[in-house]
C-alpha cells in the first residue's frame, strides 16, 4: 500500500509543537500534532509506501519504526484521509 497526497499547495505554519495547515482546495484550516504533520509532509512530493512513511515519521520523531504506536499512526492516517489530505493506493502507483 502507498499513501498519496490528495491536496495541493498546502500552506504551513508551525508554532510550538503544533502545525497549522491551510488547505486551499477546501478553504479549511487544520491543526495537527507532529505525527500527523510529518505523515502529511512525507508525501508532499509524491506517493510513498506506507511502510516508508511510518519509518520516516518515526525517524523524524526520534523513534524507531517499532516504537511508533501503530494505533496512533493508523488513526492519524485515517484522519488525514477523511480530511481529503491523502489517499491510499496500491503499490503500482509508487512504481509509476
Amino acid at each position: 500500500m502507498v499513501l498519496l497526497p490528495a491536496a495541493k499547495a498546502l500552506i504551513w505554519q508551525k508554532w510550538d509543537d503544533l502545525y497549522l495547515v491551510y488547505q486551499p482546495s477546501s478553504a479549511e484550516t487544520h491543526v495537527f500534532n507532529e505525527t500527523s504533520a510529518l505523515i502529511l509532509a512525507s508525501i508532499e512530493r509524491g506517493p510513498r509506501p506506507l511502510a516508508s512513511v511510518r519509518e520516516w515519521t518515526a525517524d523524524r520523531l526520534g523513534l524507531s519504526a517499532d516504537d511508533l504506536v501503530p494505533e496512533e499512526f493508523d488513526l492519524a492516517v485515517t484522519r488525514l484521509e477523511e480530511l481529503g489530505l491523502l489517499d491510499r493506493g496500491d503499490d503500482t502507483i509508487a512504481a509509476e
Partner: peptide, 29 residues
C-alpha cells in the same frame, strides 16, 4: 499564550475568515 492558541482564537473570532480564503490564513499568521 502560545502562538498556535492565539492563531486559533483570532481566526475563529474573525467575521470573514472563511470568505477571504488563504489571504485570511496568511494575514492571521
Amino acid at each position: 499564550i502560545a502562538k498556535s492558541q492565539a492563531f486559533l482564537l483570532v481566526a475563529t473570532n474573525a467575521f470573514n475568515y472563511e470568505v477571504l480564503d488563504q489571504a485570511s490564513f496568511r494575514l492571521v499568521a
